[in-house]
Design a protein around this nucleic acid. Sequence first.
RNA 1: GCGGCCAUGGUGUAGUGGUAACACAGCAGAUUGUGGAUCUGUUAUUACGGGUUCAAUUCCCGUUGGCCGCCCCA
Length: 417
Amino acid sequence: MKYAVPRGTKDILPDDTPLWQFIEDTCRETFGLFNYREIRTPIFEATDVFTRSIGYTTDIVKKEMYTFPDRKGRSLTLRPEATASVVRAGLENNLITPDNLLKVYYLGPMFRYERPQAGRQRQFHQAGVEAFGSADPALDAEMIQLSVKLFERLGLKELEVDINSVGCKKCQPAYREALKKYFESNLANLCGDCRQRFELNPLRILDCKEAHCRKYIEQAPAMVDHLDAECKAHFSQVVGWLDHLLVKYKINDRLVRGLDYYTRTAFEIVSKQLGAQNAVCGGGRYDDLVEEMGGKSVPAIGFAAGLERVVEILKAESRQSKIENRIGLFIATIGDEARQVGFHLLTKAREKGISADIDFQGKSLKAQMKAADRLGARYVYIIGDDELKNKSAVLKNMGTAEQKEVSFGELLSVFVK
RNA sequence: GCGGCCAUGGUGUAGUGGUAACACAGCAGAUUGUGGAUCUGUUAUUACGGGUUCAAUUCCCGUUGGCCGCCCCA
């Protein structure tokens, strides 16, 4: 094989596209129900758009971005996620202002240079929403409800919603100190990675899966206990709204997200049906990002769902219900003249909205029938020399094998009714 | 970036140090103008490069890729 897809990318083939289309349609519909409107931003941006928003110390920025100079030497980057792009677009087009509530959604490919693994690719697809202009806890709850509804409509089961609050600029530093103080004495017992995290971002220690680290993590102080009054009130109202909306959730005070811009509410939906990469969706509030990117102070919240992971689950559940791509009519012909007439009828059928096809490989009638069968054609119209004289031919129902004589003129009316 | 496992026709799988087996799919045919059943025939330089050997698909090394885990995240 001379050419192959680049590592970590995949072709989505015709057998799978119906499933993808179902997922995409369901996303659009569900987001629409919650009054989100679609936004489409470029697939690459000036590198700064991502480095400044996602954070210089995150893995994404440090080692996972596809960054390249264009012909004029500008540094561009394939988007590793879409929130930064949406903020940039919203600011540039004056859609994000303190007084305007903006609800947008997006759908599309993202790029991260990582080692491929189950549920992890270098090009992958996300569907996400962002809401700007409100710090209302009800909005946080609505967004979590939206993500749950989305997966419900997609038909996913066995999901768990985890939520936490990571505090804000004011109270998070104190919590970091508290964590450092706690881990300091046990530093020698932690794994090498955690010792690094201790310096760079102690919050991430909470995420460590090493068994011997977990012993210490369990006893570590929780962010929830270190929130300032406002963050605490916000979090309890989010939880209150979730209860009111009957959304099931689990407070997970060890939940930490990997992007630097999150504040207050952080949430994740994980599936028990996936491997190590088990999050189907993650998101949270980012009240400082808009200002950091040059806008006024505008609170915001969003989440993104990983579509490959949804596909993986739906395939495993084989719940895709074989969304078949059948055609309505196949026109089988014998001889050149019949083919010309057949092609004419084919055109008319298509004009009437009937999906239809004809042979292009010079096949025998038998082989044409076989081809029609494989295409799942509901009907085959068989035209030969005799039929040309009578302007009438046999229409065969491929399901029942019934045949009846139908004139050229009547053919389409049979389908219309 | 690190570790483990793996790499045979379109697909899924056998197998052996001496030039590849099976299933399914595909194509062609089994009386002349008709599909889905059956039968027959047909479809592979055994990922790439190098090494050991009289001889490698089978052994060794490297490369590339895949899967799984770490990391990280969706």
